[in-house]
């Protein structure tokens, strides 16, 4: 019985996945706590409970994400770029380009048949192309982050938002609210600003083959659809698992390779 785990401690959420013979038997997402160690423990406990197995059953566990260095129970750590590549290919076996928008980072990578990452590009300093941007904006609008995604479809004349700086964008949004612009137009403007930033990154790696999106923002339909328009290509959906846990899935898959000896040993 080969039970393996992957744990992805991100800046906004932490995720754990338990896999058995290539199938997910339990997963869990929590809002990240101030200390990465606590986040990792809580996420793993949740996943173990869901899978109905105990920590001792896990043969190998790989940690990834922003807080990966602080996770105590893992056998090794791997970058989330590699994990998302692996996880994405598992979720969509035809994926060749992966867009991962995390809480504080946005990455676009090209992957090969085994999910190995080739050329990749990651966003630079500002938070405006990341999940954090949407979270801040949703807070200003006083709506849930899920609702924000749905606003684009209902918008009539989306606003143009300052998109290079989250703080300025926030000031703009407040101003638009006060001047009575509809929440749909504001929301659509936010999603468009976000997509615009991501589109530059996507096009800069010259996407090929099927495009797949991972990370929490993949669930924001407004961003995904605007992004599709901007890059002029479909972003494939997969129902195999929640795209937000793709990194943790990738970590679990790499763990399985370790246990099965299929993968080459990491140096």
């Amino acid at each position: 019985m080969n039970i393996v785990a992957g744990c992805d401690v991100g800046s906004l959420t932490s995720k754990a996945v338990i896999m058995k013979n290539g199938k997910i038997i339990g997963s869990h997402i929590i809002k990240s706590k101030p200390r990465p160690k606590d986040s990792a423990d809580a996420a793993l406990d949740g996943a173990l409970a869901a899978a109905g197995v105990s920590k001792e059953d896990i043969k190998y566990c790989i940690g990834t994400g922003y807080g990966r260095e602080k996770i105590e129970f893992v056998n090794e750590v791997v970058s989330e770029i590699k994990c998302h590549g692996k996880g994405a290919r598992w979720m969509l076996p035809t994926a060749e380009t992966v867009i991962d928008i995390g809480g504080q980072d946005c990455k676009v990578m090209k992957i090969d048949k085994s999910g190995n990452v080739g050329r990749f590009s990651a966003n630079d300093k500002c938070a405006s192309g990341t999940g954090r941007f949407l979270e801040v904006m949703a807070n200003v609008l006083n709506i849930g982050i899920d609702e924000l995604g749905k606003l684009s479809a209902k918008a009539k004349e989306p606003i143009t938002l300052a998109s290079t700086c989250t703080v300025w964008a926030q000031a703009d949004v407040i101003k638009y609210i006060n001047s009575g612009v509809s929440i749909e137009d504001i929301g659509a403007g936010i999603n468009a600003a976000m997509s615009g930033r991501v589109a530059i990154l996507v096009n800069s790696v010259k996407p090929e083959g099927d495009i797949f999106m991972t990370g929490g923002v993949a669930k924001n339909i407004g961003v995904v659809e605007t992004l599709e328009k901007l890059i002029g290509r479909r972003i494939k959906r997969a129902r195999k698992a929640d795209p937000q846990i793709a990194g943790a899935i990738g970590a679990a898959l790499l763990s399985a390779e370790k246990v099965n000896g299929n993968g080459r040993k990491v140096k």
Binding site: V78, E80, N116, G118, F120
Partner: peptide, 20 residues
């Protein structure tokens, strides 16, 4: 932190290339 993530992923990419 941000730099480290990118550098690690880059080195993993070279790993994969060599493995290939």
């Amino acid at each position: 932190g941000r730099m480290k993530l990118r550098i690690n992923a880059f080195l993993e990419r070279i790993d994969a290339k060599n493995d290939h």
